[in-house]
Design a protein around this nucleic acid. Sequence first.
DNA 1: TCTAAGAAATCATACGCTTGATTTAATTGT
DNA 2: ACAATTAAATCAAGCGTATGATTTCTTAGA
Lengths: 230, 230
Amino acid sequence: MVKKSKPVAASGHSACQDRSERTRQRLIEVAVEVFAELGYEAASTRTIVERAQANLVSIPYYFGSKKGLYHAVAEYIASNIAERFRPAREHAREGLLKPGLTHDEILRMFTELIVEYAHLMLGVESPSSWGQFIYREQFDPTEAFEIIYAKFLPAFELGFEYVSRLTKKPADASETRIQFLAILSMVKFARIDQSSVLRTMGWKSFGKEEIRIVENMLRNNLHKLFARSA
Amino acid sequence: MVKKSKPVAASGHSACQDRSERTRQRLIEVAVEVFAELGYEAASTRTIVERAQANLVSIPYYFGSKKGLYHAVAEYIASNIAERFRPAREHAREGLLKPGLTHDEILRMFTELIVEYAHLMLGVESPSSWGQFIYREQFDPTEAFEIIYAKFLPAFELGFEYVSRLTKKPADASETRIQFLAILSMVKFARIDQSSVLRTMGWKSFGKEEIRIVENMLRNNLHKLFARSA
DNA sequence: TCTAAGAAATCATACGCTTGATTTAATTGT
DNA sequence: ACAATTAAATCAAGCGTATGATTTCTTAGA
């Protein structure tokens, strides 16, 4: 019952690791799309290897099992998104450290952070399959959820801190957290409810114009929710 | 290849239609839960008939096929929700007809409509599986999506009308529609992102207290978004 | 430089299992 | 006794995985 060898995640020393690594990478990239499109159960390994032009056993060979491939995909996506989001996140974090910030300055930084996140999740630069995969995992959480959640946690904490500063309520209060999550939902709903949103809005797909409309909505709502006027 | 008879949706004339109807009903009610919990693919007919204490053949017998059962479930859920929501919806519709409505009155009615919807989708009175089923279908639309969408459309139109009255913008404008959908997303996100929300909030499940917190957030945000103060 | 040994990667095939659907036989109520 | 319904057995198809053979590449000895 014990695996004889452990070729998984081959860290070969020879130069032939090149072709190997390419196959591995191709499998992951194809698997992202297939898993995102069909979900874990419905996605068959045969479909994946067919699209990746690899052999059926290359999945257990490289990833141990179908589930192993799934986890590798989760890791791949979470790392990529976290990496892309890092500049905006660190900028926002450092911005908070400055002394004597006005309410408006905080709101402006927070708005930019949220809008950046929106572009990341809805924009064309990152494949739509990434978001789909994550939302699927959020809906039907498996072990992969832990991988993803861990990478997103720092951004969450930052968001709580911003909302806390804007509302003058503790960062760990229920109101603060639920408020931030609600704001996030306004960013993501276009992806999650894709079919009903496209239909209701009369859109064919998510292009630049559509994202602009969502962005406007976000800026508008953030201003109304947090602007110091009342 | 042709079905010999058509016992589907048996409209028997004998008195034994009673037990038959009960079996049918039980199958649907169980299927709602199983489909909601596992999704279409992962839900096996064996699981369903086992929980419903019915025979394996009863599914093709009563519903033609597994897919037929699935559609029956969609119809069942959509009808039930639409029915429960009808009082609030008609009240809100009639309220809009009154002449000389003030902005605050419209906002109050709209808030009550949204809060009612929140209770319907998040509350304990309607099984959580209903919402799960719908969100699943929204994420991976099949033919069942049409059934559900059609039943929800009137409520959507009403929502657009309210937002339109509150923002003084056309009911069919992109801004109006996306704004309403964003508000809806703030209602539903707790269910859709259930795992990450429960975790982030430190909640174990959705009880009365949790729903109250979401309701407060909604009332607060709707007020900030639409109150006439600026 | 050339070539043969050995490891790494890929392949075709087959196995055990589960699925939805079908068929055959027993049971029920009238 | 008879038609309708249920239970049990069976079917074909699809799934992930295991296995042994084959190809491809790296490397070392002459």
